[in-house]
Amino acid sequence: MSGAAGPDPEEAPEEQRFLSAAEAAALERELLEDYRFGRQQLVELCGHASAVAVTKVFPLPALSRKQRMVLVVCGPEQNGAVGLVCARHLRVFEYEPTIFYPTRSLDPLHRDLTTQCEKMDIPFLSYLPTEVQLINNAYGLVVDAVLGPGVEPGEVGGPCTRALATLKLLSIPLVSLDIPSGMPGWDAETGGDAEDGLRPDVLVSLAAPKRCAGRFSGRHHFVAGRFVPDDVRRKFALRLPGYTGTDCVAAL
Protein backbone atom coordinates (compact mmCIF):
# COMPACT_ATOMS: atom_id res chain seq x y z
CA MET A 1 0.00 0.00 0.00
CA SER A 2 1.52 3.29 -1.05
CA GLY A 3 2.37 5.83 1.60
CA ALA A 4 2.04 8.78 -0.78
CA ALA A 5 0.07 11.68 0.64
CA GLY A 6 -3.37 12.24 -0.82
CA PRO A 7 -5.47 15.39 -0.90
CA ASP A 8 -6.39 17.26 2.25
CA PRO A 9 -8.98 14.93 3.86
CA GLU A 10 -11.07 17.88 5.00
CA GLU A 11 -11.57 19.22 1.47
CA ALA A 12 -14.61 18.13 -0.53
CA PRO A 13 -13.12 16.45 -3.62
CA GLU A 14 -14.46 16.59 -7.13
CA GLU A 15 -14.04 12.85 -7.60
CA GLN A 16 -14.60 10.36 -4.81
CA ARG A 17 -12.16 7.54 -4.05
CA PHE A 18 -13.64 4.09 -3.50
CA LEU A 19 -11.85 1.26 -1.70
CA SER A 20 -11.49 -2.25 -3.05
CA ALA A 21 -12.29 -5.13 -0.70
CA ALA A 22 -8.55 -5.69 -0.09
CA GLU A 23 -7.99 -2.01 0.70
CA ALA A 24 -10.96 -1.90 3.08
CA ALA A 25 -9.59 -4.94 4.94
CA ALA A 26 -6.12 -3.37 5.10
CA LEU A 27 -7.53 -0.11 6.46
CA GLU A 28 -9.37 -1.98 9.21
CA ARG A 29 -6.20 -3.92 10.11
CA GLU A 30 -4.32 -0.63 10.37
CA LEU A 31 -6.89 0.72 12.83
CA LEU A 32 -6.94 -2.50 14.88
CA GLU A 33 -3.24 -3.37 14.90
CA ASP A 34 -1.34 -0.08 14.54
CA TYR A 35 -3.72 2.39 16.17
CA ARG A 36 -4.99 -0.17 18.72
CA PHE A 37 -8.66 0.47 18.18
CA GLY A 38 -10.68 -2.33 19.74
CA ARG A 39 -13.18 -4.23 17.59
CA GLN A 40 -16.00 -3.28 19.94
CA GLN A 41 -14.86 0.34 19.75
CA LEU A 42 -15.04 0.38 15.93
CA VAL A 43 -18.43 -1.35 15.92
CA GLU A 44 -19.74 1.20 18.44
CA LEU A 45 -18.43 4.16 16.43
CA CYS A 46 -19.94 2.82 13.21
CA GLY A 47 -23.28 1.90 14.77
CA HIS A 48 -23.68 5.28 16.44
CA ALA A 49 -22.82 7.09 13.21
CA SER A 50 -25.26 4.92 11.27
CA ALA A 51 -28.05 5.92 13.64
CA VAL A 52 -27.07 9.59 13.24
CA ALA A 53 -27.28 9.20 9.45
CA VAL A 54 -30.84 7.88 9.83
CA THR A 55 -31.74 11.00 11.84
CA LYS A 56 -30.36 13.23 9.08
CA VAL A 57 -32.65 11.76 6.42
CA PHE A 58 -35.62 10.95 8.66
CA PRO A 59 -35.67 13.64 11.38
CA LEU A 60 -37.92 12.66 14.26
CA PRO A 61 -40.11 15.82 14.35
CA ALA A 62 -41.12 15.25 10.70
CA LEU A 63 -42.22 11.63 11.22
CA SER A 64 -45.57 10.13 12.07
CA ARG A 65 -45.81 7.47 14.78
CA LYS A 66 -45.68 4.70 12.17
CA GLN A 67 -42.66 6.26 10.43
CA ARG A 68 -40.75 6.21 13.72
CA MET A 69 -41.04 2.43 13.79
CA VAL A 70 -37.74 1.06 12.43
CA LEU A 71 -37.03 -2.58 11.62
CA VAL A 72 -33.29 -3.40 11.87
CA VAL A 73 -32.37 -6.67 10.12
CA CYS A 74 -29.05 -8.04 11.40
CA GLY A 75 -26.77 -10.82 10.16
CA PRO A 76 -24.28 -12.83 12.25
CA GLU A 77 -21.12 -11.07 10.97
CA GLN A 78 -19.66 -7.67 11.88
CA ASN A 79 -22.28 -5.71 9.92
CA GLY A 80 -24.91 -7.32 12.12
CA ALA A 81 -23.09 -6.10 15.23
CA VAL A 82 -23.10 -2.59 13.77
CA GLY A 83 -26.84 -2.97 13.21
CA LEU A 84 -27.41 -3.92 16.86
CA VAL A 85 -25.55 -0.78 17.98
CA CYS A 86 -27.49 1.30 15.45
CA ALA A 87 -30.77 0.00 16.88
CA ARG A 88 -29.69 0.86 20.43
CA HIS A 89 -28.80 4.42 19.48
CA LEU A 90 -32.01 4.85 17.52
CA ARG A 91 -33.83 3.95 20.73
CA VAL A 92 -31.79 6.56 22.61
CA PHE A 93 -32.76 9.07 19.90
CA GLU A 94 -36.44 8.21 20.63
CA TYR A 95 -37.18 6.18 17.52
CA GLU A 96 -38.93 2.83 18.03
CA PRO A 97 -36.64 0.09 16.68
CA THR A 98 -37.42 -3.62 16.41
CA ILE A 99 -34.69 -6.16 15.56
CA PHE A 100 -34.84 -9.23 13.36
CA TYR A 101 -31.67 -11.26 14.04
CA PRO A 102 -32.39 -14.76 12.71
CA THR A 103 -28.89 -16.30 12.77
CA ARG A 104 -27.37 -15.23 16.06
CA SER A 105 -23.61 -15.26 16.42
CA LEU A 106 -21.95 -16.94 19.39
CA ASP A 107 -19.29 -14.23 19.38
CA PRO A 108 -19.13 -12.55 22.83
CA LEU A 109 -19.38 -9.10 21.26
CA HIS A 110 -22.65 -9.98 19.51
CA ARG A 111 -24.01 -11.53 22.70
CA ASP A 112 -23.14 -8.41 24.72
CA LEU A 113 -24.73 -6.10 22.16
CA THR A 114 -27.83 -8.29 22.07
CA THR A 115 -28.09 -8.13 25.86
CA GLN A 116 -27.82 -4.33 25.78
CA CYS A 117 -30.70 -4.13 23.31
CA GLU A 118 -32.83 -6.56 25.28
CA LYS A 119 -32.28 -4.64 28.52
CA MET A 120 -33.38 -1.46 26.74
CA ASP A 121 -36.64 -3.26 25.87
CA ILE A 122 -36.00 -3.28 22.13
CA PRO A 123 -38.19 -6.09 20.73
CA PHE A 124 -36.65 -9.00 18.82
CA LEU A 125 -38.82 -10.71 16.20
CA SER A 126 -38.81 -14.50 16.04
CA TYR A 127 -39.68 -14.39 12.31
CA LEU A 128 -39.61 -11.81 9.52
CA PRO A 129 -43.11 -10.70 8.51
CA THR A 130 -44.10 -11.06 4.87
CA GLU A 131 -43.78 -8.15 2.46
CA VAL A 132 -47.47 -7.29 2.82
CA GLN A 133 -47.30 -7.45 6.62
CA LEU A 134 -44.22 -5.22 6.69
CA ILE A 135 -45.87 -2.59 4.54
CA ASN A 136 -49.31 -2.70 6.17
CA ASN A 137 -48.37 -3.20 9.79
CA ALA A 138 -45.98 -1.01 11.67
CA TYR A 139 -42.70 -0.13 10.01
CA GLY A 140 -41.88 3.10 8.22
CA LEU A 141 -38.22 2.29 7.66
CA VAL A 142 -35.93 -0.76 7.39
CA VAL A 143 -32.19 -0.84 8.19
CA ASP A 144 -30.22 -3.48 6.28
CA ALA A 145 -27.31 -4.77 8.43
CA VAL A 146 -27.38 -8.31 7.06
CA LEU A 147 -24.14 -8.68 5.10
CA GLY A 148 -20.85 -6.81 4.94
CA PRO A 149 -18.00 -6.74 2.42
CA GLY A 150 -16.88 -10.23 1.43
CA VAL A 151 -19.82 -12.07 3.02
CA GLU A 152 -21.96 -14.13 0.65
CA PRO A 153 -25.64 -14.84 1.42
CA GLY A 154 -25.00 -18.60 1.52
CA GLU A 155 -22.45 -18.14 4.30
CA VAL A 156 -24.97 -16.80 6.81
CA GLY A 157 -27.76 -19.35 6.46
CA GLY A 158 -31.23 -19.70 5.04
CA PRO A 159 -33.04 -17.19 7.31
CA CYS A 160 -30.80 -14.33 6.16
CA THR A 161 -31.17 -15.36 2.52
CA ARG A 162 -34.95 -15.39 2.88
CA ALA A 163 -34.86 -12.02 4.63
CA LEU A 164 -32.95 -10.52 1.70
CA ALA A 165 -35.54 -11.90 -0.71
CA THR A 166 -38.26 -10.11 1.26
CA LEU A 167 -36.30 -6.85 1.58
CA LYS A 168 -35.85 -6.68 -2.20
CA LEU A 169 -39.61 -6.39 -2.62
CA LEU A 170 -40.26 -3.61 -0.12
CA SER A 171 -41.58 -0.23 -1.16
CA ILE A 172 -40.79 1.39 2.20
CA PRO A 173 -37.47 3.25 2.67
CA LEU A 174 -34.38 1.06 3.07
CA VAL A 175 -31.08 2.10 4.67
CA SER A 176 -28.05 -0.15 4.02
CA LEU A 177 -24.99 -0.12 6.28
CA ASP A 178 -21.58 -0.16 4.54
CA ILE A 179 -22.73 -2.01 1.40
CA PRO A 180 -26.18 -3.06 0.22
CA SER A 181 -26.65 -6.71 1.18
CA GLY A 182 -27.25 -9.40 -1.39
CA MET A 183 -24.04 -9.93 -3.31
CA PRO A 184 -23.36 -10.65 -6.13
CA GLY A 185 -26.01 -8.00 -6.61
CA TRP A 186 -23.53 -5.58 -5.02
CA ASP A 187 -19.94 -6.74 -5.23
CA ALA A 188 -17.57 -4.85 -2.94
CA GLU A 189 -14.71 -5.48 -5.38
CA THR A 190 -16.21 -4.97 -8.83
CA GLY A 191 -19.07 -2.67 -7.98
CA GLY A 192 -21.57 -4.68 -10.00
CA ASP A 193 -25.27 -4.05 -9.41
CA ALA A 194 -27.17 -7.01 -10.80
CA GLU A 195 -30.94 -7.26 -10.68
CA ASP A 196 -30.96 -9.42 -7.54
CA GLY A 197 -29.14 -6.93 -5.31
CA LEU A 198 -30.81 -4.63 -2.78
CA ARG A 199 -31.32 -1.08 -3.98
CA PRO A 200 -31.46 1.07 -0.84
CA ASP A 201 -32.65 4.64 -0.63
CA VAL A 202 -29.81 5.47 1.80
CA LEU A 203 -26.28 4.06 1.99
CA VAL A 204 -24.01 4.63 5.00
CA SER A 205 -20.40 3.85 4.09
CA LEU A 206 -18.40 2.86 7.17
CA ALA A 207 -14.88 4.34 7.48
CA ALA A 208 -14.75 5.02 3.71
CA PRO A 209 -16.87 4.23 0.63
CA LYS A 210 -16.34 0.78 -0.90
CA ARG A 211 -16.05 0.26 -4.64
CA CYS A 212 -19.67 -0.83 -5.01
CA ALA A 213 -20.77 2.61 -3.77
CA GLY A 214 -19.65 4.05 -7.09
CA ARG A 215 -22.85 2.65 -8.60
CA PHE A 216 -25.20 3.61 -5.77
CA SER A 217 -28.20 5.40 -7.25
CA GLY A 218 -30.28 6.03 -4.13
CA ARG A 219 -31.22 9.38 -2.66
CA HIS A 220 -28.64 9.79 0.11
CA HIS A 221 -25.08 8.55 0.61
CA PHE A 222 -23.23 9.23 3.87
CA VAL A 223 -19.74 8.34 5.02
CA ALA A 224 -19.20 7.56 8.71
CA GLY A 225 -15.43 7.88 8.98
CA ARG A 226 -14.58 10.85 11.12
CA PHE A 227 -12.77 8.53 13.52
CA VAL A 228 -10.23 7.54 10.83
CA PRO A 229 -6.92 9.29 11.73
CA ASP A 230 -5.46 11.75 9.24
CA ASP A 231 -2.35 9.60 8.70
CA VAL A 232 -4.54 6.67 7.67
CA ARG A 233 -6.60 8.86 5.36
CA ARG A 234 -3.44 10.02 3.62
CA LYS A 235 -1.95 6.53 3.40
CA PHE A 236 -5.06 5.19 1.67
CA ALA A 237 -5.52 8.39 -0.37
CA LEU A 238 -9.03 8.83 1.01
CA ARG A 239 -10.80 11.83 -0.46
CA LEU A 240 -13.42 12.23 2.23
CA PRO A 241 -15.73 15.23 2.49
CA GLY A 242 -15.46 17.75 5.27
CA TYR A 243 -17.49 17.08 8.41
CA THR A 244 -19.64 19.93 9.67
CA GLY A 245 -19.25 21.04 13.26
CA THR A 246 -19.26 17.99 15.51
CA ASP A 247 -21.09 15.75 13.02
CA CYS A 248 -19.83 12.15 12.83
CA VAL A 249 -21.26 11.62 9.31
CA ALA A 250 -20.95 13.58 6.10
CA ALA A 251 -23.06 13.55 2.94
CA LEU A 252 -21.42 12.48 -0.31
Rank of each mutant, 00 (worst) to 15 (best):
196 D>M: 12
215 R>H: 13
139 Y>P: 00
168 K>W: 08
138 A>Q: 08
43 V>F: 03
13 P>N: 14
103 T>C: 07
37 F>L: 14
233 R>K: 15
104 R>N: 01
183 M>R: 07
37 F>I: 13
185 G>H: 01
230 D>T: 13
103 T>Q: 02
195 E>C: 10
81 A>V: 04
51 A>F: 00
195 E>T: 14
201 D>H: 10
34 D>C: 07
111 R>G: 02
139 Y>Q: 07
118 E>L: 12
237 A>R: 15
165 A>R: 14
135 I>F: 01
106 L>C: 06
120 M>V: 02
103 T>G: 05
15 E>F: 04
9 P>F: 09
25 A>G: 10
174 L>C: 04
119 K>I: 13
40 Q>N: 10
117 C>E: 03
145 A>K: 01
142 V>A: 11
80 G>S: 05
134 L>V: 07
61 P>W: 05
33 E>S: 11
68 R>F: 02
8 D>C: 06
155 E>C: 03
73 V>A: 08
89 H>N: 12
152 E>A: 11
116 Q>M: 10
81 A>T: 08
165 A>W: 10
15 E>Q: 12
103 T>D: 06
244 T>K: 15
245 G>H: 10
140 G>C: 03
46 C>F: 04
31 L>K: 09
214 G>W: 01
117 C>Q: 01
192 G>Y: 06
185 G>V: 06
207 A>V: 11
19 L>Y: 03
11 E>H: 09
88 R>F: 01
48 H>R: 12
94 E>Q: 10
41 Q>F: 08
127 Y>W: 11
140 G>Q: 00
166 T>W: 01
141 L>E: 05
250 A>Y: 01
89 H>E: 09
85 V>Q: 06
77 E>D: 06
245 G>V: 14
99 I>P: 01
219 R>F: 05
70 V>I: 03
114 T>E: 06
16 Q>N: 13
80 G>I: 01
155 E>Q: 09
17 R>E: 15
92 V>S: 08
126 S>E: 15
146 V>R: 06
31 L>I: 06
157 G>L: 06
3 G>Q: 08
140 G>V: 00
148 G>F: 02
48 H>I: 12
49 A>C: 11
121 D>G: 10
133 Q>T: 14
218 G>M: 07
121 D>H: 15
91 R>D: 09
157 G>Y: 02
79 N>D: 10
236 F>N: 05
22 A>Y: 03
170 L>N: 12
47 G>F: 07
69 M>F: 00
65 R>L: 07
39 R>S: 02
98 T>Y: 04
213 A>G: 10
246 T>V: 15
75 G>S: 03
25 A>M: 04
159 P>M: 07
85 V>C: 12
94 E>A: 12
151 V>Q: 01
186 W>D: 15
73 V>C: 10
17 R>L: 09
171 S>Q: 06
222 F>N: 11
224 A>H: 05
173 P>A: 04
189 E>R: 08
226 R>E: 15
64 S>R: 03
203 L>D: 13
61 P>G: 09
81 A>W: 00
100 F>L: 14
131 E>Y: 00
190 T>E: 10
55 T>A: 15
28 E>I: 08
213 A>P: 07
167 L>K: 02
65 R>S: 09
141 L>F: 04
169 L>H: 15
234 R>F: 05
92 V>P: 00
206 L>Y: 03
213 A>E: 11
225 G>I: 13
78 Q>C: 04
139 Y>F: 08
180 P>L: 04
24 A>K: 01
235 K>I: 02
237 A>P: 01
147 L>T: 05
